[in-house]
Design a protein around this nucleic acid. Structure first.
Lengths: 142, 142
DNA sequence: GTTGCTGCAAAGTGTTTGCACCCTG
DNA sequence: CAGGGTGCAAACACTTTGCAGCAAC
């Protein structure tokens, strides 16, 4: 794992008069080693294997911290739980979610982005963020 | 309110050996008279004014029924509660959600739809549904 | 008169919070 | 050694479910 993310986190922490703890390091490490779209529960159980003392609440709180510091992005695919995506040095993209196997394919289409801007402008709307999810079946599951 | 929706519902109900009840009629009526993207709680409280006997669970159960019968569409804008959209005879569209006032502008851009198909095809992905939400501020709130 | 429906309350889910103690800076 | 961080359990918000009585067919 690149050390850059740790630096980003420690930077955010010191700039905001917060504190670096071993738990925060552990959660960040597990997050960076996790699949790209982890749920809290998944991350928590992967952490529990090596650090059973770390509580679920700490995972929640640390993920919120990672989100604020710009390392994680909160996602909601409508399955009733939050998922977190890596976002350090990672360009914006949209998702195709396979409803059979759960695989997530990322994509980006510049023209789709452009037309979103166009449509927003036509309606006097200022976009701060957006999400586009395609649900369906991937190549292996069709 | 058009009677067509009632017919759709009663049709679904009889085809599935279910029963038409006054509660179901009431919930359907309130749903049709509601704003386009109602939350369960909103619908429940508007129903409670005229029919205080109808329970929240019935509203939940009836909305699930409306969804199955093709009259409503479950939405999730990531605010932690389900919203239901009218969908009888209502073409597909996407949403701009104003994060200030909650207003929802619907739009449809044929080229965006087309490029979604293109991108999916390139990845061997078969789309069954999709959603595109733009978050930001509307004209009045910018 | 079956069988499904309702209201209520209880149970479930995922997430947040209050608090006493602990640890970082 | 002050103030934030942690683990735990309780609280939360939203949704689902079990059940006894009720109503539609």
């Amino acid at each position: 794992m690149a050390n850059n993310e740790i630096e980003v986190l420690e930077d955010y922490i010191t700039r905001n008069n917060l504190k670096i703890t071993s738990q925060r390091r552990t959660v960040l490490k597990a997050f960076l080693e996790s699949e790209k779209h982890v749920s809290v529960e998944e991350l928590y159980s992967s952490i529990s294997k090596s650090e059973p003392k770390i509580g679920l609440a700490t995972v929640y709180r640390t993920l919120a911290l990672l989100t604020k510091s710009g390392l994680a992005l909160e996602m909601d695919f409508g399955d009733g739980q939050k998922r977190y995506e890596h976002c350090y040095m990672h360009a914006h993209h949209d998702h195709m979610v396979c409803t059979e196997c759960g695989k997530i394919i990322e994509f980006n289409h510049p023209l789709i982005e452009k037309f979103q801007e166009d449509v927003a402008k036509e309606n006097g709307f200022t976009i701060t963020s957006h999400k586009l999810d395609l649900m369906g079946t991937c190549r292996d599951c069709s």
